[in-house]
Nucleic acid binder design. Structure first.
Lengths: 122, 122
DNA sequence: CGTCTATGTTGACACACATCGAACCAAGCG
DNA sequence: CGCTTGGTTCGATGTGTGTCAACATAGACG
């Protein structure tokens, strides 16, 4: 049983900087690939991508679950995917009264954008 | 008037737009999410990410399998992942004599970069 | 307190996937 | 032609994942 749950807490500063250089700069090391693949994987599901996009594009940068849960799957599945996005560090959640609001972790888009930035920019 | 270049500034589905608008622009439709998730998923594996990065960063933009197959898995597994990347449209392959060369599909980085581009740059 | 709505959690199940060894093609070389 | 090296395909196997129904929790409200 290799079900070790060692989740290294993502410190805010650690989450921002050390993700990775652009994919085109040099071959990724195993560690870099592990970290970056986790983000890509989290967005590698259509339902999660729609949820993420719905939150990211929602006004104010945050969205209540009730506003984004219309993606064609059951409510527990939505909750499951939101949890995955949260575990991957892409979203944060906060309960305010009856509803739970999700919000995009700002550093994430920057990190992934840097990953895909070509060395030869415009 | 045959060399008119239409700039796809306001028409996301026209011309260049290879798959989707930025994630932050509006909620993705099911079809957009399906297409985009396929690319993210292809890069959502550490081994594939290392292979892709190795090809993308290799000089000349292409690499022989023999040059990038040192990622800690067996050679059939490497071939399997390269095939997946090829099926996802991220890589192309060409046999030249003894060796097989892989090369990054150029439009891919642009497409994914556009996906993650925030309306307001950093 | 009891009840209703909004989310999260659990258990179960089917399917997909990553991985390997072995067998199989392709090109060069004696 | 047989041999060697490079690469892909095949079959099997264990693990991961998406999904749902059922249950659990957290506030709001009467």
């Amino acid at each position: 049983m290799s079900n070790v749950q060692v989740l290294p807490l993502l410190e805010p500063e650690a989450a921002v900087a050390p993700c990775c250089p652009p994919l085109t700069e040099r071959p990724f090391s195993a560690e870099e690939a592990e970290v970056a693949a986790r983000m890509f994987k989290a967005l590698g599901d259509p339902v999660r991508l729609r949820l993420f996009s719905a939150v990211a594009s929602h006004e104010g940068g945050e969205a209540c679950v009730c506003d984004i849960s219309d993606v064609g799957v059951s409510q527990p599945t939505v909750s499951h995917h939101l949890k995955k996005l949260k575990d991957a560090g892409l979203l944060t959640s906060e309960r305010r009264g009856t509803w739970v609001y999700y919000r995009v972790e700002p550093s994430v888009l920057a990190a992934m954008g840097q990953l895909l930035s070509t060395a030869a920019g415009p």
